[in-house]
Design a protein around this nucleic acid. Structure first.
Lengths: 217, 217
DNA sequence: CCTGCATTCTATAGACTTATAGAATGCAGG
DNA sequence: CCTGCATTCTATAAGTCTATAGAATGCAGG
């Protein structure tokens, strides 16, 4: 161990391995990617990878965990905050879509490949995912109590819809590095809050937009 | 050819092969599935599969095509119709989500695995997909002209969002055969049209809900 | 019954993969 | 300099997979 008690070169290289695996799995899929691909991407030989992972499957597990762990954490902070519902929703989208840029491909791998993990590992991830969804559901329930959203909203449906939209944009974000995330976040938040329909009356708003005169056809 | 000019046993079996491949690819992914898996599912031996496909890749191409071809057709009919915007949107969701049930897994395979096809085949599919999106964009433009939706809507964004939501639900539909599709269609259409927000004024509506008093927190 | 054709089978070549074992390398500290 | 440990390498066993070749099967019509 030379110097630090535990986190010397090993920890650093293991993380590099996880990131390499994330990139390769995201591009070729778990089964389409070979351990040689991963090793080559981090500049070592295929066999050496097994110094860091017991198996290819373990690598997948680590990538998936890496992909969601702190994005669940961020969701907890958002949910616990004091902002009004609209701000929380936007913060959620911001956090979720930003993950797709920052963490590169690990979140995508979690979404697309986790089901190739053995039952046991999948259960742990499933709980994290369920927790995320429940936080979101709680946010919607709070929104209803506060009168920010309609009380006819099915919170379970709403949470799944938000997650679904985020992941749909995630797919696009990962493949198109030029997409303006912030624009997407704003438009998506607006869509989720207000829908496409012409609002045919003033809301309570006194906002930035000069409110283009509600021309009807 | 025994009887019919062309579509004797061969055509029938080839379709069976495409469906078997769709099921297996959907479950295990293109690379995770073997030609043996496909053959076994249709009750023949691995080598016999090559009587129907030149390669595993060709099978993937056929599955993807099978997955979208007539769902694009249905979209054309919807777009060309005379219904108001709201009805067209709902028809779109109905068509899209129903495809996930009817066509079993082929549409899912199109979504998840088509990028493993060689450039050339992918281009054909991409055009079909783009066409679908353009039809949807046209629907939104028409909706704006008719005053059904806000003219601030970005039609390109809107089309991608609708497709994204449909595919997100598709993932869930394929894995959960008990999900009530019709309920999902209705809630999703409502979400897309009106959003989650409390509408704080009478629209033109005279609907069922007695409009719970807009309590603020 | 025999011939011809469509369909399926068996067997296998050749390539590629995961995972392991044991050797090499290089650095840290005595 | 030498020893010990962490890290990486080489080589390979054992298995799987795609695709092909040629044989078997069974049916239709003469």
């Amino acid at each position: 161990m030379t110097a630090e008690p535990d986190s010397s070169r090993y920890q650093h290289q293991r993380l590099a391995a996880i990131k390499a695996a994330a990139a390769v799995f995201a591009e070729k899929g778990f089964h389409g990617a070979s351990t040689r691909d991963i090793a080559e991407r981090m500049g070592i030989k295929q066999g050496s990878l097994y110094y860091y992972f017991k198996s290819k499957e373990e690598a997948l597990g680590e990538v998936c965990l890496f992909g969601i762990e702190d994005y669940v954490l961020r969701m907890e902070q958002i949910a616990a905050g004091e902002q009004p519902f609209e701000a929380k929703l936007m913060a959620t989208l911001t956090s979720h879509l930003s993950s797709y840029r920052e963490k590169n491909e690990a979140l995508k791998v979690y979404n697309d490949e986790r089901l190739y993990l053995p039952e046991e590992k999948r259960k742990v991830l499933k709980q994290l995912g369920s927790h995320y969804r429940q936080l979101l559901e709680g946010m919607f329930e709070e929104g209803i109590r506060q009168g920010a959203i309609r009380d006819s909203i099915d919170c379970h449906f709403a949470a799944l819809a938000v997650i679904g939209i985020c992941n749909a944009w995630g797919d696009i974000i990962v493949r198109d590095p030029d997409l303006d995330i912030f624009d997407t976040i704003q438009k998506s938040t607006d869509l989720l809050l207000h829908g496409f329909s012409e609002r045919r009356t003033h809301q309570r708003d006194r906002e930035e937009k000069p409110a283009s005169p509600p021309k009807k056809h």
